[in-house]
């Protein structure tokens, strides 16, 4: 199992702030593509991925138990 955290516009499009799903043997890119298929209206393509609170590139391999977050472009400050 992995946890996928959603924020801001992505969270609002999907209507949830967290999805728990089977997984832990795919890359970030594969997860991203799956989510884009499941939620075609949500702007995943604009979001950076973070695993366990660190930014990761799209070829990062997700392990079981990881918390993946999709980070839309930030606007703090």
């Amino acid at each position: 199992m992995i946890k996928v955290l959603l924020f801001a516009a992505v969270r609002e499009f999907i209507g949830k702030d967290m999805i728990e799903m089977e997984g832990g043997s795919q890359t970030v890119l594969q997860l991203r593509e799956q989510l884009e298929k499941d939620y075609p209206e949500a702007p995943f393509s604009h979001a950076m991925a973070a695993v366990n609170e660190s930014f990761v590139p799209d070829d990062y391999e997700i392990k079981p138990g990881d918390t993946v977050a999709f980070i839309p472009p930030v606007s703090g400050g």
Binding site: A9, E12, H46, I71, P72, P73, V74, S75, G76, G77
Partner: peptide, 20 residues
């Protein structure tokens, strides 16, 4: 790099700001 998002509420609607 800091995951914080601002949502603006204007008189005529609201929007997530993602392009500061």
């Amino acid at each position: 790099i800091v995951p914080i998002w601002k949502k603006e509420f204007w008189e005529d609607g609201s929007k997530w700001i993602g392009d500061q």
